[in-house]
């Protein structure tokens, strides 16, 4: 059993490159989320513009990884754990791309409220809390995948439940936003923003499911409040 890790060196290098590229995509998402949170806090329309433009990087990464995986499948015929990793990366990069799209959705909503929107501090506070929780989910999903930590991955569904609770709270508060039409409009935008953040959280949970698949070969959905455990 000589040469334990020198065989198929080219293949292993390529596989590692694809994984790093995918996780790098999550890093870009983190950056985007940082910007999103800052733009939300300070109603920064120019920052929102940057977020929208920078999504090209995410899309570019998605296409690159996709192509790389296709190549690897065609040329190297990976099996067993290599195959599971490749399949998982395909899913993960898709989730990365979705997360990027959600950041863009949020960024699009910021300018709609104008430069001096009628802000309800309670709603804004909740939205920012959601954003920070989602950002932490993104970081945790990256860590779980990189270290193949199944428990860390499973913990994501707990975090996501909090995000879902906050989302429903934002919605409830928005309904009772008052009579001022500007305020009501702003509140509706906030619910849409909250929804986008909730979607980001869901994608992070899905990445966690992929971690379990890579490690065990089994695919199980994590129980979240949107898909309650039985």
């Amino acid at each position: 059993m000589a040469d334990h890790h020198n065989t198929r060196q080219h293949f292993r290098d390529e596989l590692r490159r694809l994984e790093e590229g995918t996780l790098g995509g999550l890093d870009i998402i983190r950056e985007q989320m940082d910007r999103t949170l800052e733009a939300l806090e300070h109603q920064d329309v120019e920052l929102a513009e940057m977020i929208m433009l920078d999504d090209d990087r995410v899309d570019g990464r998605y296409l690159e990884i996709n192509q790389g995986i296709l190549s690897l499948l065609a040329l190297q015929a990976p099996v067993a754990s290599d195959l599971r990793l490749v399949a998982a990366l395909l899913h993960v990069i898709k989730h990365v791309e979705r997360m990027g799209d959600q950041c863009v959705n949020i960024a699009k909503l910021i300018p709609l409220s104008g430069h001096e929107p009628p802000v309800r501090e309670d709603i804004k506070g909740l939205v920012l809390r959601m954003g920070r929780a989602a950002r932490s989910e993104v970081l945790q999903s990256r860590a779980a995948f990189a270290t193949r930590d199944v428990e860390l991955a499973a913990d994501l569904s707990r975090q996501d439940r909090e995000v879902n609770v906050l989302n429903r709270e934002v919605f409830r508060l928005a309904i009772h936003a008052g009579d001022d039409p500007d305020t009501r409009e702003w509140a509706m935008h906030q619910t849409m923003i909250a929804r986008a953040i909730e979607r980001i959280g869901d994608n992070a949970v899905d990445i966690g499911e992929q971690v379990v698949f890579v490690v065990s070969g089994l695919f199980r959905e994590f129980p979240t409040s949107t898909a309650p455990a039985i």
Partner: peptide, 16 residues
């Protein structure tokens, strides 16, 4: 796709 034994895994993934 998911062999039980690590020796099987090593062989079919080309580690030896």
């Amino acid at each position: 796709s998911n062999p039980n034994d690590s020796r099987t895994e090593d062989y079919i993934t080309g580690k030896f």
